[in-house]
């Protein structure tokens, strides 16, 4: 049998197990490798501590400096909008919190669903804008690779199917919910092997940068 309910149960059952296993193994392979390889040993006398500047940079690098903003205001503003929107929908939507709770035991309050729906709609528009910008901006178009388009497609599919499932615009519901879960699983699977890894490594990279500056006594 191959109905929508069986499809949903497959995405919630065996497929989820496979995806989460590939994600966990893949991500930890990457992160363990990064930490174990570390940096080349610095024999110079440290001028200041590493930890505080490292952590400061993790925060400060989240905000574009005025120069970057002036050069690429679109990237900064639209990038921020969809990143924040994505995180709100991911972390503050009740069904997602329930999923996280079932895996980790951790939970927190959710935002009201219509608010999440609005944020998701804005995120979708911002994501479309990034694609249009990528395909029309002369420099961006030339430096874009197949991977960039793949990652965009997967992220967009996750948000779009999630929004369609919430608004129940596709019938039967198990089909669209299954598609949403499958899209999220594809995202989990490709996450450790594409630039999506930045979700986890961005923080590490910023810390390394900040720590290196701090050691040299440079403002980070």
């Amino acid at each position: 049998m191959s109905g929508s309910m069986e499809f949903l149960l497959w995405t919630k059952g065996p497929m989820f197990d496979i995806a989460i296993a590939i994600f966990a193994i893949g991500l930890l392979v990457r992160i363990a490798e990064i930490f174990m390889l570390g940096r080349a040993k610095n024999f110079a006398e440290p001028r200041a501590g590493e930890w505080k500047p490292g952590l400061t940079t993790v925060v400060t690098r989240s905000f574009a400096d005025p120069g970057t903003f002036k050069r690429a205001p679109f990237n900064v503003v639209v990038g921020w909008i969809w990143h924040v929107g994505f995180l709100i929908a991911l972390l503050l939507f009740l069904p997602h919190i329930e999923l996280i709770k079932s895996l980790t035991g951790l939970s927190w309050p959710a935002l009201p669903n219509p608010l999440i729906s609005l944020v998701t709609a804005v995120t979708l528009i911002a994501l479309i804008a990034t694609l249009v910008h990528r395909m029309t901006h002369p420099v961006k178009r030339r430096i874009s690779t197949l991977e960039d388009y793949l990652v965009w497609t997967v992220v967009f599919a996750v948000v779009l199917t999630g929004w369609l499932a919430y608004t129940r615009m596709v019938n039967p519901y198990p089909l669209i919910l299954g598609m949403h879960i499958l899209a999220a699983e594809i995202m989990l699977i490709i996450l450790p092997f594409t630039k999506l890894t930045h979700i986890f490594t961005a923080v590490i990279a910023r810390w390394y940068n900040g720590a290196a500056y701090g050691r040299k006594g440079v403002q980070s």
């Binding site: 966990a24 991500l27 930890l28």
Partner: peptide, 11 residues
């Protein structure tokens, strides 16, 4: 478990 296996492989 999967993460631990991943960490071992990564190491």
């Amino acid at each position: 478990g999967a993460a631990a296996a991943g960490a071992v492989v990564g190491g």
